[in-house]
Design a protein around this nucleic acid. Structure first.
Length: 203
DNA sequence: AAGTCGCG
DNA sequence: CCGG
């Protein structure tokens, strides 16, 4: 059996179907208020293959000029991000083992061809808090390694309703999404995958 | 490089 | 050519 690197927890089927549907409904409201945008790589301006938005007091954004960062407003509308849905705050209280609530919930939309290269979540000031991730919709192949890019990696599938926690030694683990398996879920009427990532930005 | 390409 |  697969052995996950230290500090990485995979909680399969954390959310049942009804809860998944309720989360999708909540995210639709978020997207209506904070439209999806195309994130761009620092300096080159190359677009990433996912579309994204955020909820919470802070949101993760990136563009050619200013690069990766957290900010309290939507990059295109200038409006503050909508609130994080209560069910996600409850998830954090359940699994994070961290006193304060998450400040950012990044919402990533993956189409069939979308990927996410291996990277670390290191734009936060607080690494004591874990990163908590929720998968909704189509199954993906998730890849995780260690704290150095050259560390060995392993991969496993994430299904709709699964939760992954990157905490402790796993907090700065390299991770990414190698591929989406199209039409493996009926949760999203237009297909694809939604990933929700909860993070604490400041201590 | 949260991408892309090269290698096996 | 495709996947790790």
């Amino acid at each position: 059996m697969r052995k996950l690197p230290g500090g990485i927890r995979h909680l399969p089927d954390y959310f049942d179907r009804a809860e998944q549907q309720a989360l999708v409904d909540a995210i639709r409201l978020v997207v209506a208020e904070a439209p999806l945008f195309v994130p761009r790589m620092p300096k080159t301006g190359k677009p990433m293959s996912v579309r994204m938005t955020n909820c919470g007091p802070l949101g993760w954004v990136t563009d050619k000029e200013r690069g990766y960062r957290y900010q309290p407003h939507h990059p295109e509308t200038g409006n503050p991000w909508p609130a994080i849905p209560e069910r996600l705050l409850a998830l954090w209280r359940d699994v994070a083992e961290y006193e304060k609530p998450p400040q950012a919930c990044l919402v990533n939309f993956y189409t069939d061809a979308a990927k996410m290269g291996l990277h670390q979540d290191k734009d936060e000031q607080e690494f004591q808090a874990p990163v908590v991730s929720v998968s909704l919709g189509d199954t993906c192949l998730f890849r995780v390694g260690g704290q150095e890019r050259s560390d060995p990696t392993m991969s496993f599938k994430l299904n709709s309703g699964d939760v992954v926690v990157l905490g402790g030694q796993g907090r700065l683990a390299y991770h990414g999404v190698d591929r989406i398996y199209p039409a493996t879920s009926t949760l999203l009427k237009n297909g694809g995958r939604i990933n929700l990532t909860l993070r604490r930005v400041t201590p």
